[in-house]
Design a protein around this nucleic acid. Structure first.
Lengths: 189, 189
DNA sequence: CAGCATTATTGGACTATGCATATATAGGTG
DNA sequence: CACCTATATATGCATAGTCCAATAATGCTG
């Protein structure tokens, strides 16, 4: 459960309800960590059970009541323990690369589509990251670090776009060459 | 279960035993997809159950017997179905960024360690990717695509190393500045 | 007023995966 | 001989996470 620690981190910034938390996650850490809505509530419940967060019901007139969660001292301690713990990197899971790896079974147009869709997706992600308005003068370390995670996403997205172009061009060239040398053979299905 | 499809893809290249498959995965798709040994065997069992692969026991004198798995026609059909299916990208999980995002609670030396360790890890991964010997003249599309997945890893690793340097420098500068302006204040614990 | 969107929470089923452990054979090394 | 490594397969347990659906109140819009 690493979402647990991400949630602790968020609650350390300010108390939240499950609903608010879900939105906050989507908007801040969303580009490198996501959480299913049901998972968010489950995690909060777990934190309360473990005494790492406290819950307070806030009665609202205009909307359904909400449970406001605050981090406890124990929670802060656990957060710091996590921050000090060795960071183990789980191996990357890249379904796109997995697909590409076996894509020679696909028709040429399908491969083109694969690239096109990926380019669109990464482009959109990049645009979203670049659209985030950043404070003029970042002062505290926290803000600097959070901006850095944005930069990370932007840099990686740009790298991938460049790689997409280079790769597709290389594959494309290959196919033209193939067409030349294989003109006498029947069209592959 | 996407390992299922990765395994199908591997079996489409050549029949394998669980043991061989595990090693093949580590050596080929390992940099963007990994599989626990137990998971490999479970997945193979599942494929056989579903008729997507067939198993044949090979008796060996010098070593324990092995179960050689081959992909069936149904398996090839499923593989192609998967290749044609829409690719849904699960959101990235980047524990390192998650850590960094909340790292302002950490001591400066701990942040330095975080960067140092990450730099080492990424550097090692990059070295491993660059060490892969590639065929002189890649001819078929399959080889080109597989080399492309290597290039992807290399490009992303290099980008990350550059980002690590830039980011740490920025944080470092900030800290020097802080030291200047905060000289009169007591050392933070 | 019917239907939809937003706010807010919860439960059940399922899956993928990891970790630990067990078993068996054979070869090499101290 | 004890121990380690490589080959080879398998099971049990735990858990993080997703998907789907239900519930409930309110406000907006056609």
């Amino acid at each position: 459960m690493s979402l647990k620690h991400a949630v602790l981190g968020m609650l350390a910034i300010q108390p939240m309800s499950g609903y608010t938390l879900k939105k906050a996650i989507d908007e801040s850490v969303g580009h490198f960590w996501t959480a299913d809505q049901s998972q968010v509530y489950r995690t909060l419940a777990g934190l309360v059970d473990d005494g790492l967060a406290s819950r307070r019901t806030v009665v609202q007139d205009e909307r359904p009541n909400l449970h406001l969660h605050s981090i406890t001292d124990e929670g802060l301690a656990e957060l710091d323990r996590w921050l000090a713990s060795p960071l183990r990197t789980p191996p990357a899971r890249e379904p796109f690369l997995a697909r590409l790896f076996f894509a020679d079974r696909m028709a040429p147009e399908a491969i083109r589509d694969l690239f096109r869709n990926r380019r669109r997706e990464v482009g959109e992600a990049l645009a979203a990251l670049e659209a985030v308005t950043v404070p003029e003068h970042a002062e505290d370390t926290g803000t600097l670090l959070r901006l850095a995670t944005l930069d990370y996403g932007i840099a990686q997205a740009r790298t991938e776009l460049a790689w997409l172009d280079a790769t597709e061009q290389r594959i494309g060239k290959k196919r033209i060459h193939e067409k030349h040398t294989d003109e006498h053979r029947p069209e592959a299905p």
